[in-house]
């Protein structure tokens, strides 16, 4: 910062602007509360499945507004298609390699957690998910829970 040090008058101007913008950009209480509450979703023991691919509106494939998301952990890949149904979302998924599992969708805005069982081919469907931040939690027969990264659906 040595070659662009602020003059005193520049600094005063920035401080005045800072006071002004502190009021204009004040964070709504609900937004702050949601940030604080995020901590309750800490799950240090779960394995994280990273989002490795996101394709929106694969119109040439589907002709609709579906999104294709691919999450990858060491032992498993979770592929999901997110399909808008009116103002809700349907999640159709596939575990690779195919295997039975308990699959739940978690959303910070929702009190209850919706879950389903993937069939022997690793397929599952979750209906009636609200748009917004969400993650899937997969519990496999022989390992701990695997959480997808939080993603805005």
């Amino acid at each position: 910062m040595s070659d662009d040090r602020l003059t005193t008058s520049d600094e005063e101007l920035l401080v005045r602007l800072g006071s002004l913008l502190a009021e204009v950009d004040s964070v709504p209480e609900s937004v702050r509360a949601a940030a604080v509450a995020s901590y309750s979703w800490r799950s240090p023991d779960a394995e994280l499945a990273r989002l490795v691919e996101s394709m929106s509106g694969a119109a040439e494939v589907r002709g609709d507004e579906a999104r294709l998301l691919t999450f990858r952990a060491d032992s498993i890949t979770i592929e999901v298609e997110v399909i808008p149904v009116r103002d809700r979302l349907r999640i159709v998924g596939q575990l690779v390699p195919p295997q039975p599992a308990r699959v739940q969708v978690e959303q910070p805005g929702s009190d209850s957690t919706v879950g389903t069982d993937a069939d022997g081919l690793g397929r599952f469907m979750l209906d009636d998910t609200a748009p917004g931040p969400a993650r899937l939690v997969c519990t496999l027969a022989d390992s701990g829970p695997i959480c997808t990264e939080w993603t805005i659906l």
Binding site: V31, A34, A35, W41, C147, W150, I152
Partner: peptide, 28 residues
């Protein structure tokens, strides 16, 4: 976080979602 989210053409609900998703990502 809120100011960065506000810098894009998003409505208030989307700004709130971006903020929350950002904090959830930090948690994980």
């Amino acid at each position: 976080v809120y100011t960065v989210a506000r810098g894009f053409r998003l409505d208030e609900a989307d700004v709130a979602d971006v903020s929350q998703a950002t904090w959830l990502r930090l948690v994980e």
